[in-house]
Amino acid sequence: MQDLRYARASSVAEASRLLADGGPTARVLAGGTDVIVQARERTQKISLFVDIKHIPEAVGVGGAEGGGLTLGAAAPCCHIYDDASVRSSYPALVDATSLIGGTAIQGRASLGGNLCNSSPAADGVPPLIALGATAVIAGPGGERRVPVATFTTGPGQNVLEPGEFVVALEVPAPAPGSGVRFLRFIPRNEMDIAVVNVASALRLDGAEVAEARVVVGAAAPTALVVEEAAEALVGRPLSQESIASAAAAARAAVRPIDDMRGSIRQRRHLAGVLTERTLRDAARRARGEEVASHP
């Protein structure tokens, strides 16, 4: 392990102060499943860990004032998928948090960490974008809010300024008639990084689609909101044809890379397949049907 110090913050102000004093090599420690590996393998220069798990706002999972859900940025996946209100009202968050790593990773890994690590393949990010989530950021200049959709700016890069950190994620209350579904393709059943992942959100007004959002991950430098897919769906009844048009739009929009996990051709194909499947499941959830996250 590289030479580093550890500090425990018990308030947002204390964490901000520690990060400011620590300079550019100070890093927030939430679940540690990425940063501890980066520190050990020296892929990042880290001189100070600021542990934010003793800040109440950074670990809570629960209802927000005026409806909606507030997720502490450092709340572990297992606290998210075990939460009764998440299970009943935000099942897409269960889809994602129950397939990030294995059980021991889910005991530590957080959605705030997943967002700030800013991997193009992050499994937590497409569902947060589909849900319209906002990151609450604290820093030397005070607090600001940034939509998760514009938070990540490139692989490993995001909008955080020096001394800033994500305290919480705010998810608006689901509108009546809405449903969100997240699916990921990996070559095995669990414990791998997404070849492609997709989150789709639908709001139905009777048979007609009133709102739609399709977000494709691992197929561009950042998770991609496919506007053309939404356009293919909104204002008409959900049908075989409109779903196929949305899938075609997703295939056209992605800018994937070839790597050991998958080829450009495979990723493009998967973007279409997962768009279709997530839209069908999102519609079922919008109609109040149960769709199990996974076995």
Partner: peptide, 26 residues
């Protein structure tokens, strides 16, 4: 020693975690 194998699994406050991905100070 990077969170993939689970050989170092322990319970931390009742939760299953990999000890290689926890700092002792925590």
């Amino acid at each position: 020693n990077n969170g993939n194998c689970g050989a170092c699994a322990v319970l931390l406050d009742g939760r299953l975690v990999n000890a290689c991905l926890v700092m002792a100070a925590e």
